[in-house]
Nucleic acid binder design. Sequence first.
DNA 1: ACCACTATTGCAATAGGTTGCAATAACTAG
DNA 2: CTAGTTATTGCAACCTATTGCAATAGTGGT
Lengths: 156, 156
Amino acid sequence: MSRIRSHSEPWGSIGERLRRRGLRWTPQRATVIEVLAEGDGHITAAQLVEQCRARDPATIPSTVHRTLDVLEELGLVRHGHAADGHEEFHVLPATEHGHLHCSACGASWEIGEARAIAVADAFRAADGFEIDIGHVTLVGLCRSCAALGSTPGRSD
Amino acid sequence: MSRIRSHSEPWGSIGERLRRRGLRWTPQRATVIEVLAEGDGHITAAQLVEQCRARDPATIPSTVHRTLDVLEELGLVRHGHAADGHEEFHVLPATEHGHLHCSACGASWEIGEARAIAVADAFRAADGFEIDIGHVTLVGLCRSCAALGSTPGRSD
DNA sequence: ACCACTATTGCAATAGGTTGCAATAACTAG
DNA sequence: CTAGTTATTGCAACCTATTGCAATAGTGGT
């Protein structure tokens, strides 16, 4: 059995998947993937570099970035953008979901699959647009900040 | 009458508005505002720097960025994020609107006030979230790319 | 008109991420 | 198991955007 907590199935055979495409299985990539497999499915490149360094102090940022590019091509991660526009990565498999950010109190949270699909359906019906709801973090005011009449800040 | 094409009213008295707040009216700020007032209401900081240089080759990027911060505090511009997360500025006054970007063909376009309000209403009703629809560019597949079964690229 | 005050500028230094390239090492074939 | 091929790495140079600070120059008061 796998020793990793989650997403265990698709991660186990990555070495083979890489080799089948003429790519290579390296210790650096193994480190990146270990960290990704143990995380909660959301991570920024900077956080990933930091966590890789905990395992291998020789970790080089550019290698991590390039590994993420490769993993995205393989379909194992997808990048999105946080409220401030910075790149963040979603580790797959993940259910369809979205991110909301309150620009007044700075809170961020997710909307579940049902809501995400409802939003996507609404766009598809109205514009014929097949929205990738998870790609960007939607910004606005949360219920309580809106009720308080808070003004949007510049948290991003 | 004003010589500028659009947004003429709020821009005329900026010098006074700045001074009333203890801020100053400088030639550099005048250059930035001239360019903003003549544009179409959407601009990135880099584009703004470039256009300011056409008028004043001595334009310094950091000055432009800081001027934009001031104008945002005054409520004359609002920043948002393009599909790739880069900052872009909306010149006010502007009607509520949103931006869509197709990750397959790279096209970007706007959704009008009616659709923007409909989206905002839907979020308010479902989540109590007061979405700032114009803040981020929504990414996905346009009608024709979706119909062709295009795969999302990495244009961002 | 001048002065004092201080917001603003311009520059230099910094930070963060990206890119080019020679050296390394993973992989495949024999 | 060995050797050749070439993907990948690590480093350094680079680029864009941000920040600190001394010098400059708008402003309001006299």
